[in-house]
Write a protein that binds this DNA or RNA. Structure first.
Lengths: 177, 177
DNA sequence: CAGTACTTTCATTTTAAATTGAAAATATGT
DNA sequence: ACATATTTTCAATTTAAAATGAAAGTACTG
């Protein structure tokens, strides 16, 4: 089946994608993933894998893997066209939704493992290390875990609640006093 | 000059350092840097480069570079012993200070470049791209930048203000309603 | 102004992460 | 069930990041 050309392409978009790719690198995101996300953000209509591949000169494997990752993150939706196996992809354009997706991933990757230290710490205090240095480390860890729990609370809210909460929180929090 | 052994070392600390290193990886921090930070966090007294090197089996180059990075971040303080060129290093143990350091770095690395998109966006709208797709991208970008500014506000405060503000903010924000 | 103790740099090597491309698997229409 | 369009997987390659180690630089001491 001949694929209708759905890509809109111009210099502004090309530049945007480049910038988005660089930004992605700073955020610890694979270049291909960031580039695809940038491309889809700049497109109003869903694209098929082949369009993504050829527009960004990526291999099929990479395009597929990164597209999958974007779908897993919730930043991109797969769209099934009726009467064909073909899958198309659109990006979520709402900034708040995007942020929630990213927050979800970061919490999983960065915060949850940190909070697991709590369990480890307890399992350790069972072992009889009550030397002064061990106790000092214990105290430091307590402080870290308290902070981590606080940040975690913010993330939990950010992820599970609606946009209104976030806005209210920012307004309340950022107002001096 | 013979160096007095200042390291306190046991299984708990070794495990902690290992966990901290893994955590570091999830946070996009070089393993050696995370390991050194873990080691210094677990020590009450300042260590010299050679102790760090041998305890963690690192090369001198790596120990030096990562120690420097930790000092640059503000997570570790260099201590000059009088009457010798020798430099020792201690970790900041206060969790809030640590968080502020990390927030500062992340803002610089992840947020500031995002905010620079604003300038780019404006320089682009000067060029006459008023096609429908270009306008759509423009709108999406606006949303993203608005979110980015909001998050940036939080970070600015977190970095420049004192601990009390942060605590208050969390308490106010996290209380339901 | 040596001599030495420590620090800094950097070309090379190592390691980990991302990408490729082609083969295998799966779904869909006839 | 067959043929074909599309997706998925994965061993091999490429690329980028970090670590090494030895040489060069710098400050302190007598």
């Amino acid at each position: 089946m001949k694929t209708k050309q759905t890509i809109v392409w111009d210099t502004v978009q090309e530049e945007f994608i480049q910038k988005w790719r660089e930004l992605g690198t700073a955020w610890g995101i694979p270049p291909a993933m960031a580039a695809i996300h940038g491309l889809l953000l700049s497109q109003q209509h869903p694209l098929i894998t082949d369009e993504v591949m050829s527009t960004l000169s990526l291999s099929r494997g990479s395009a597929h893997t990164q597209l999958q990752a974007l779908v897993d993150w919730g930043l991109v939706y797969p769209v099934r066209t009726l009467g064909t196996r073909q899958r198309r992809y659109v990006a979520e354009k709402d900034a708040w939704q995007m942020m929630a997706c990213i927050a979800r991933q970061r919490k999983k990757r960065e915060l949850d493992p940190l909070l697991e230290l709590e369990g480890w710490k307890e399992s350790q205090s069972a072992g009889l290390s009550d030397s002064a240095p061990a106790q000092a480390l214990d105290k430091t860890l307590d402080g870290i875990l308290t902070q981590a729990r606080a940040v975690n609370g913010v993330f939990d809210r950010l992820i599970s609640e609606d946009e209104r909460w976030w806005e209210q929180w920012l307004i309340r929090g950022l107002r001096r006093n």
